[in-house]
Design a protein around this nucleic acid. Sequence first.
DNA 1: CTACAATCGACAACGTGGTTGACGAAATGG
DNA 2: CCATTTCGTCAACCACGTTGTCGATTGTAG
Lengths: 159, 159
Amino acid sequence: MASTESPGFELPLRLLLGFRALVDQLNAQLAREGHPGVRPVHGFALQAVGPTGTTAVELGRRLGVSKQAAGKTIDALQRLGYVQRRDDPADARRKVVAITPRGRDCLVRSARIFDELRRGWAEVLGETRLRALEDDLRRVAPGEPLGVDAPGWLGAADG
Amino acid sequence: MASTESPGFELPLRLLLGFRALVDQLNAQLAREGHPGVRPVHGFALQAVGPTGTTAVELGRRLGVSKQAAGKTIDALQRLGYVQRRDDPADARRKVVAITPRGRDCLVRSARIFDELRRGWAEVLGETRLRALEDDLRRVAPGEPLGVDAPGWLGAADG
DNA sequence: CTACAATCGACAACGTGGTTGACGAAATGG
DNA sequence: CCATTTCGTCAACCACGTTGTCGATTGTAG
């Protein structure tokens, strides 16, 4: 028979390690390029805001968290100068969240850095295998590229 | 030219999605088998305690968190009945953390469930490709299978 | 037009998990 | 014998999530 199979627990560990490596490098590079203070959550949230703007409720839906949590995230993003709240002229209840130029800068840099990091992996694994890896992950871990629900998987309460 | 490359940001997302899928399924199954209340962090910590027992400081080192955080985790594990604190007869400062039978039960079930989940992936991808995936991840995300430093990557403060 | 329901955003209270700082007790070493 | 280090714990704080509530506004009957 062939070599022994890996123990099952290694898989999630490697997945997490890989994720962490990527995200940590992203944030380090982002800090170097004038965006310190940014956290993984912020990046995801900023991405989720999108170019057209959103509301807290909608953002919460996209991120898979409560509207209150989304509101707090928006607060943080606003404090960092990445988004701005504007009153919606058509609906006085709504407040539209829009990305600022600085937020956009962060976003484009993130995209570039992620591409560079991916290139780094491609150099190690080869483009073919990297694509295979991505394809395989898509098959076992499907889902919209942006319905991440990223925060909460660790601290998710049971109550 | 070949098909377009995936955008770089998809990789971390898929990695996280895969991790989440595995861990969520683990916890769901664990709950079904008489271990509700267990959280991802607990599993990692329990694993990190090891069969020989540890101290809070040592556990903190292994998990990559402060001794205080490790202490809190031990508190939680103790409340759940998974570990026990004993005074070290050789050193009155130390308190040795040891896994209880129930903790051991949780651990062996976790191992089995993780193996089953891996088998599930193997059925989808084929053993060969799954191994390739694991090999590739090992290359781009090396590190001890247990130096996870799992908690903290999301909430890691910059200050 | 008015009354009722739904929606949005915010506030409060809380839980969890991390951090630092400080401190007493015990071990270690000059 | 005293100074330093180590261990465990307490307290305060921050980040991020949750639920519950509530006022303001909008939409929808009646």
